[in-house]
Design a protein around this nucleic acid. Structure first.
Lengths: 155, 155
DNA sequence: AAGAATAGGTCAATGTGATTGACCTATCTC
DNA sequence: GAGATAGGTCAATCACATTGACCTATTCTT
């Protein structure tokens, strides 16, 4: 069984399966990072949307509904329900803005901040462990590759 | 403004924002890899589900509906519609299995194979470019870190 | 050969989440 | 006071997936 271009063929199939592996492992990594927070949220009847809200409000306390809506890229109708649920559960606090009473300031309550820290912390912890395990240089490389992939996205 | 533990504080905030950055850049990378194939699919009125079907059938030609269903982890009702659409568009071909006439063999048509190669190729190309840009060592590091993240997922 | 099991398809009801569109209040700006 | 703006809400609709029930064709079992 003679093969005319064994190197090229092998190189190709090796590359190909390696690239598929990259795609696959990236999916698994995503799922892994999301899995535990999702479980914690589910216990309270919450979902990823709620986490996203808590996440952004934690980083920009006092942001308005409109700002949040823009960041999350959803309609106000889609935002309204989870927002009310978070308020009902005492995780966020809505108040009128001082400069403009039409605007609502969204803030985390102590409990909301605690939950957010737990959820996000869980995720960041996984990255921290992976980075620590691989070392500083490997971490930099990871950022280089992943950043290169992300490059095409506007923003 | 005296600071008691500047190193620790800085290290923490630096780490923290770096980890958040990691999470963010990973999201963007995901979106970037998915974006172009999604656009190509949309032109034909297809979605990511259809791509997933084409992807798996390309790698395991002749697989059964049940196998596909198991791999995709959806119900047969959910699978049926996109499967029929792909057949209607002449992208897949269904035939009875030789060993068991109840079982349907799913295969890609020439056109289906061509589309699948274009879709998946587009995605793998992005990885290939990112890896080539970063070099072999960085690629290995990327796999190490991402693999470590994915570790917790069964399978 | 009869009966049970299996692969697959289909109809129906239901649920979830998001979207568009219209309309409403309160408030601010000019 | 008129018009614009932030936000809320009701309603219809859409996309998609799920469960459940039922049906055919085929294979396996005894």
């Amino acid at each position: 069984m003679p093969r005319k271009t064994p190197e090229k063929t092998n190189a190709y199939t090796h590359d190909h399966s390696r690239l598929i592996d990259a795609w696959r492992v990236m999916h698994y990594a995503l799922r892994a990072v999301i899995a535990e927070p999702d479980r914690m949220l589910a216990k309270r009847g919450l979902t990823r949307v709620h986490h996203r809200i808590l996440f952004f409000v934690a980083r920009q306390p006092g942001m308005s509904v409109g700002e949040l809506q823009a960041v999350l890229d959803v309609t106000k109708q889609a935002l309204n329900t989870p927002l009310k649920q978070l308020q009902t559960q005492g995780l966020i606090d809505l108040s009128k803005a001082a400069h403009d009473a039409r605007v609502r300031r969204i803030e985390l309550t102590a409990e909301g901040a605690s939950l957010e820290a737990k959820l996000t912390g869980e995720q960041l912890q996984m990255f921290a462990e992976a980075f620590a395990h691989a070392g500083e240089d490997a971490t930099a490389s990871w950022f280089e590759v992943t950043g290169k992939l992300a490059e095409r996205i506007a923003r």
